[in-house]
Design a protein around this nucleic acid. Structure first.
Lengths: 262, 262
DNA sequence: CGCCCGCTTGAGCCGCTTCAATGCTCGTGG
DNA sequence: CCACGAGCATTGAAGCGGCTCAAGCGGGCG
């Protein structure tokens, strides 16, 4: 289920290992993605869609491989014209929107395998800022090519729709969090979500490093950074987690889930 | 700008209404002429896309015209299998999601022209409940037909993508509201939003009737119903609006906008 | 016509925020 | 390699915005 990988953060091939199975016989020598972009998540996409040889090369020709964004750099800002949709090949970003007064709302933390930029399709402009939380690499495809390829390759089209639909479903989950949960539940939900996404990528789901600041987390959860910090400390005392600044170990995942009411 | 009309709806949970029942399944054969469905928003859609005569008839054949949902009835509930995407031809719905404990979060109030059900595309199941706030009529199209038609008619495909993208952008706006705004701003934003949507449909944008309860509004805004009621009363005293239960007149739209910070 | 259900309004409280001070980390440059 | 400093995180204390609990009212629907 590729689309789950892209939207929710489940399994995505993270090293060239699994991709090396696409032998040279599979594609045109000049069009091989994995020589330049071993982790390219677009590759996972078209493999999933079960494209023919011709389709695969058609697909691959349109991928802009390997755009690097250093930590702290913008991929783009709100208001700029939609050029490409991107898939994160490695790294971690932050998505945020701002109002006139400079208030910021973090709306997501996309990571490896996630497709980003879909909110721009409606208006032709990105509606949010995207900043790298760590050095990241992305592959892009011009939106016009997305449409053309979708038209040429129904399986691709289908997957694209599923990814967009999953994004809408994800957003509804965040609305629930922001509208109906208390602070402790929000923080627990956040931790479980991050844990799950790391685990789905083959990393430890119980011991990881948070790449974002307390302020970022707080904004995402609709809280103040002090509140987030206090709840982390409380969870620490309760032995639910062991946390040291950005280093987190989940010690009692069952009770965390229980706290969320699951 | 058809797709703008489609943008506003999404769903949320609500629970325990004994008067609500699941509506009957679609029973009509689909080839009804749109003379039976004079306002059919799908018609607006294919007009907008500039289809040829042949395409238009191809399109029209797949539309299931005129499903009626009475006030208080569900269009569907969370968890049920995705059958069709619907466009609201007339009426007003409420979209909501629920958790295990019965907590409800209203995620939108789709109205005439809005396309609904897109969150189900990712998983094949609706993620939210949709209830009619007033007697409503909808036209549906099976999702499989959506895909096929999109493939056959690029202009349709393109518009569909724009609608989905716009929905994602809309969701981000709600996240900002829920995560970053104070109660007064939320209520003002809500009133301005409803006003704008009525105006866009040719109704008065300054004098209208709210079809949802205070509880629904409160849930949508992440507040308690008493808070919403108090703020309405406050706005009334401030001469920003004249409100009597569900009947609202916007008296000072400029100051409302100012309150939101726009 | 009568009875709920939904709306309004008040009073008191609590969870989260605000304000403030200190400590820690990491990146930077010497 | 270390010293420095700025930004980030933690923690405490006090305040307040929105919530909880409660009572009364009005209007739509059966």
């Amino acid at each position: 289920m590729w689309y789950r990988a892209v939207v929710m953060g489940s399994g995505v091939p993270k090293q060239g290992r699994s991709l090396s199975r696409i032998g040279p016989a599979d594609s045109r020598p000049s069009a091989l993605p994995h020589s330049e972009c071993p982790n390219c998540s677009f590759v996972a996409w078209y493999r999933h869609a079960g494209l023919s040889l011709h389709e695969a090369s058609q697909f691959n020709e349109r991928v802009e491989h390997r755009r690097l964004v250093k930590r702290g750099e913008y991929l783009h800002q709100a208001g700029s014209a939609l050029m490409s949709l991107h898939v994160i090949c490695s790294g971690f970003l932050k998505t945020s929107i701002t109002d006139g007064d400079g208030r910021e709302q973090v709306t997501g933390f996309p990571m490896t395998g996630n497709l980003i930029g879909m909110e721009a399709i409606g208006s032709g402009k990105y509606m949010c800022n995207r900043i790298a939380l760590e050095d990241s690499s992305l592959c892009g495809m011009r939106y016009a090519d997305f449409e053309e390829l979708g038209h040429a390759i129904p399986a691709f089209q289908h997957d694209f729709h599923r990814v967009m639909g999953a994004e809408i479903a994800r957003d509804q989950g965040i609305m629930f969090l922001l509208g109906a949960m208390r602070a402790e539940e929000r923080v627990a939900t956040f931790l479980l979500n991050i844990s799950k996404r790391f685990a789905a990528r083959g990393y430890s789901g119980t011991h990881f490093r948070l790449p974002m600041t307390r302020q970022d987390i707080a904004s995402y959860l609709g809280l103040k950074l002090e509140t987030v910090s206090r709840i982390f400390s409380r969870f620490n005392k309760m032995q639910l987690i062991a946390i040291n600044v950005k280093d987190v170990e989940i010690k009692n995942i069952a009770r965390l889930q229980q706290l969320v009411g699951d």
